[in-house]
Nucleic acid binder design. Structure first.
Length: 461
RNA sequence: GGCGCGGUGGCAGAGUGGUUAUGCAGCGGACUGCAACUCCGUAAACGCCGGUUCGAUUCCGACCCGCGCCUCCA
């Protein structure tokens, strides 16, 4: 099965041809850890987690790196506001990020490099850039000279003139050219800093990714992903650094996910209209959030709303119902593996067409619901395997419906079981009025009952 | 101003030069003591105007509307 990916560099979809088919390299920009992450930050994590799973299915080895940016002026401000060292802030929020992403069923990347562990690599890369004439020192800063790179702007498809025409920032006086960007900047005594050939200072925004990619994945990698807002300047500048330092290509396929919108507007920290993953997790299982993120293809904008989450929840319920079975529990066939040309793999191979993949899940679930008993084990195994490719259907079906997320004042499982026994006795005695009263009582408490041949099942609404 | 993306049924969201996904919600039916789940059936869409074509939601052009980026941002 050929994987096809939309490459921002070329602007169209093309078959994925790896540098080395025995080992795929994937890098995704991770968070700057000074706050809890919002659902918009989670989108690339989930989208590229699906890509990671798919690549692992298609190739023998995949090295996936997702960084933690733990030095940055925003972190410094947060630390200063809280009266704590930056490490207290970055430790807390990188741990929170890991927890949140685990709750979304994102696999842990092969490597999670931290910027502050790679300052030496960054300094070495900056020295290389200076020695090759692509960077210069000025007033304690080191700047990348964009004019030294003929095809600068090829990712964002902008010429230098266009960029400067629309510039809305003041140009620092020490820049030779207005478009030059910072590789290294000086730190004052009270600011975090590292010794360098240019004095005590700290790295600029873009150099960490280039340095960590060089260190862990090599000078040229297969795939680099991130949000669309990183195309310029972040990824454009990464290309400049990587290509000029190594004298090679830097990234072969650039993938960018679309934004999450709230009421038609981009969700962002600066607009203040964000929804924290941590808050959403108090109200919805992580799998519901994950499913909601996968309902749109990753490059499309995704409008985020309560309705979207409710739809995701009820759709997952129906898939889990299929796994649960109507009567006898279904034991999935052991050792089932999705074939290479399975519709789900075909859908994901088409630039991660997750909506199409979800429709495949529905087709399998429908077949499972209709199937004769002897066919059910294979179909259940197929549905589970298909779900796993997308990081979905991770829960045991019965626990999915009986999950204890109802909060304070909710009925305990024991209390529910006692009422179900009472109702069973009433039904045996043909006292349907009493049976219905118990159903109504449980319904008011948010519990739905279902009578099956195997007995009564309950689930929380 | 420059560059780019998009407008699909009540909602979400794929896709296609003709037979027009999928899900949620709706409607009818089967099943059920009643329900729920499930199954069967059903209705409903391609921003506007031209062009190409036997045929356009799909290709081309103009227009309208919305959104994004242009050194904080997933």
């Amino acid at each position: 099965m050929t994987l096809t990916l939309h490459n921002t560099l070329t602007g169209h979809k093309a078959p994925f041809v790896p540098l080395d088919p025995t080992c795929i390299t994937l890098y995704v920009c991770g968070p700057t850890v000074y706050n809890y992450v919002h659902i918009g930050n989670a989108r690339p994590v989930v989208a590229f987690d699906v890509l990671f799973r798919l690549l692992q299915r298609l190739y023998p080895k995949v090295i996936y790196a997702r960084n933690i940016t733990d030095i940055d002026d925003k972190i410094m401000k947060a630390a200063s506001d809280a009266g704590e060292p930056i490490s207290a802030i970055t430790d807390r929020f990188s741990a929170a990020f890991a927890e949140d992403m685990q709750a979304l069923h994102a696999l842990t990347p092969t490597i999670v490099p931290h910027a502050t562990d790679h300052v030496d690599d960054m300094i070495a890369m900056i020295e290389t850039l200076i020695s090759k004439g692509h960077a210069y020192e000025a007033e304690g800063h080191v700047l990348f000279a964009v004019e030294s790179m003929p095809d600068y702007g090829k990712l964002s498809k902008r010429s230098l003139d266009d960029m400067l025409a629309g510039a809305r920032v003041e140009v620092a006086p020490y820049k030779r050219y207005a478009g030059d960007f910072v590789l290294w900047k000086p730190s004052s005594e009270d600011q975090p800093g590292w010794d360098s050939p240019w004095g005590r200072g700290r790295p600029g925004w873009h150099i960490e990714c280039s340095a960590m990619i060089g260190r862990h994945l090599g000078p040229v990698i297969d795939i680099h992903g991130g949000g669309q807002d990183l195309i310029f300047p972040h990824h454009e500048n990464e290309i400049a650094q990587g290509c000029c330092a190594h004298g090679t290509e830097y990234v072969r396929y650039w993938l960018h996910n679309g934004y999450i919108n709230i009421d038609g507007e981009k969700m962002s920290k600066s607009l203040g209209n964000f929804r924290l993953v941590r808050e959403l997790l108090k109200r919805y299982p992580g799998e519901v959030l994950r499913f909601a993120l996968l309902t749109a293809q990753y490059r499309s904008p995704l409008n985020f709303s309560e309705e979207l989450l409710e739809q995701a929840a009820s759709t997952l319920d129906s898939l889990y119902y299929a796994l649960l079975g109507r009567d006898a529990a279904i034991v999935p066939e052991q050792g089932y593996v999705l074939p290479d040309d399975h519709p789900l793999i075909r859908a994901l191979c088409d630039d991660l067409n997750t909506p199409e993949a979800i429709s495949v899940l529905h087709r399998i679930a429908g077949a499972l619901n209709r199937a004769a008993p002897e066919d059910k084990p294979r179909l259940k195994a197929e549905l589970l395997a298909a779900g796993q490719m997308m990081g979905l259907l991770n829960a045991e079906p019965s626990s999915w419906f009986q999950r204890d997320d109802a909060g304070e004042g909710a009925l305990s499982a024991d209390a529910i079981d006692a009422l179900i026994m009472a109702r069973r006795d009433a039904k045996k005695a043909k006292d349907f009025a009493r049976a219905d009263a118990i159903r109504a009582e449980l319904d008011a408490a948010g519990i739905t009952l279902e009578d099956t041949r195997e007995g009564t099942r309950w689930s929380r609404k």
